[in-house]
Simulated scan of single mutants.
Amino acid sequence: MDSTYSSFEHRLKDNAGKIEALLNRLLDDASLDDEIVRPARLLSAMRHGVLNGGKRLRPFLVLESAALLGGDADAALRIGAALECVHCYSLVHDDLPAMDDDDLRRGQPTVHIAYDYATAILAGDSLLTYAFDIIAAPETQLPADRKMALVLALSRAGGIGGMAGGQALDLAAEKETPDESGITTLQAMKTGALIRFACEAGAIAAGASDEDRKRLRLFGEKIGLAFQLADDLLDLTADAVTMGKATGKDAARGKGTLVGLHGQEWAEATVSRLVTEAGDLLSAYGDKANILIETARFVANRRN
């Protein structure tokens, strides 16, 4: 096995463990200063939506992009945890009957199935809010201007012009199939925006130059598109047991995808091209970028 890939796999697993442990501590039942009480059922639902395994790819990108540019590892870990809270909130809400109506997530009942609809909504609301608490808290030891930049970037990536807006476009696509430009915009918002943030956040946390920040942002945009194309390919070819969730739903709902427009062969070639372009962006950093480049390959070749 290639030594870089072996190192990548080890770091992915190790960092996932660190993120899981931090999220477990952050979602403890002890109230923080200025919190009155943490309702047990709500907290349990939040934990169900977050502490259910997963590769923790987005936090991994934060950690590795920060490491590439000399950022503080502990601060990057907390930013990664905040990002994972936003990602998991989006999954809790997306699974609701009014959205994608899924009963299974990572092989487990979704939050609204394990609890109830109202609790799932409140769990998602709480996770989203908590993400900004985690960044702003004094335990995230970064200068105030970097925290402010991170809050702004995450707000833009997750909000009306990012992930939430992308979900709105996704729902609209069930009624009227968008053209290729519309599909690309939808996917860049719903899926790509948080992956873009993950890569850019490491540069922000490290206090890197504008050039480095733009380079990592573009790297994130390319692997975000590769991630979505790979996801669409899996939706077409994988089974529910492998994926840990229902598959084939986009086609069943008549949603347009780039894979549906251009075919599997085009999509596989495009993913390969995007991974190459993403790697070329980081060539200036030499061997220090090997893990991030391997992450781009992992995104393209994943099986679930």
Rank of each mutant, 00 (worst) to 15 (best):
R253A: 15
R56D: 06
D250L: 06
D231T: 05
N24A: 15
L154M: 11
A144C: 07
A66G: 13
I293A: 01
R78E: 05
A172K: 13
R11H: 11
G54A: 10
D100T: 09
P138G: 08
R105Q: 10
D125M: 09
A164R: 08
G165L: 05
A296S: 13
D179Y: 10
G182P: 08
I36F: 09
A205V: 00
D232Y: 09
T110D: 10
S90E: 02
G158E: 06
A198G: 09
H112K: 08
K13R: 13
N52L: 13
A240S: 15
A289D: 07
S209F: 07
K249E: 12
G254Q: 06
L22I: 01
N24H: 14
K147E: 08
D101E: 06
T295H: 03
D170C: 10
L43V: 09
N52E: 12
K175F: 12
A172W: 07
R303G: 04
W266D: 08
D29S: 15
S181Q: 14
L104N: 06
S209Y: 04
P59M: 08
C199P: 00
L236D: 09
E20D: 15
F60T: 06
A230M: 02
D232H: 02
A188E: 09
L225W: 00
G244W: 07
G162C: 07
M189E: 07
L32Q: 06
A73D: 13
S272Y: 01
S209W: 10
R106I: 03
H87Q: 12
R196P: 00
N304S: 15
S65G: 08
A82D: 04
A137E: 12
K214N: 12
V62Q: 03
A240T: 11
N15Y: 11
N15I: 13
A136E: 13
R58W: 04
I79D: 02
G107L: 02
L63K: 02
A137Q: 12
I79T: 07
V275S: 04
L83D: 08
D210N: 12
G224K: 02
L128N: 11
A123S: 14
T4E: 05
A40L: 10
A205G: 15
L32I: 01
G248E: 08
D95Q: 11
L282N: 04
D100S: 09
E174M: 13
S31H: 09
I19S: 00
R146H: 08
D102N: 12
G254V: 07
K245I: 03
D280M: 08
G182N: 09
P109I: 10
A30K: 14
R273Q: 14
T177F: 03
A123P: 03
E211W: 00
H48L: 11
M163N: 06
L43R: 10
A120M: 10
H10C: 00
H10L: 11
A114P: 03
S7K: 11
L12Y: 01
F197C: 01
P138Y: 03
A193K: 01
L274V: 03
E20A: 11
A98W: 00
G165M: 10
R106V: 11
L104C: 06
V37I: 14
P59G: 06
L61F: 14
F219K: 01
I160L: 14
A114L: 07
A201Q: 02
I121H: 05
D116T: 04
F60R: 05
L32P: 00
L169M: 15
I183G: 04
K255T: 07
F60Y: 14
K55E: 05
E180W: 01
A230H: 01
A73I: 07
V111L: 02
D29R: 13
F219M: 01
I134G: 02
D232C: 06
K175E: 12
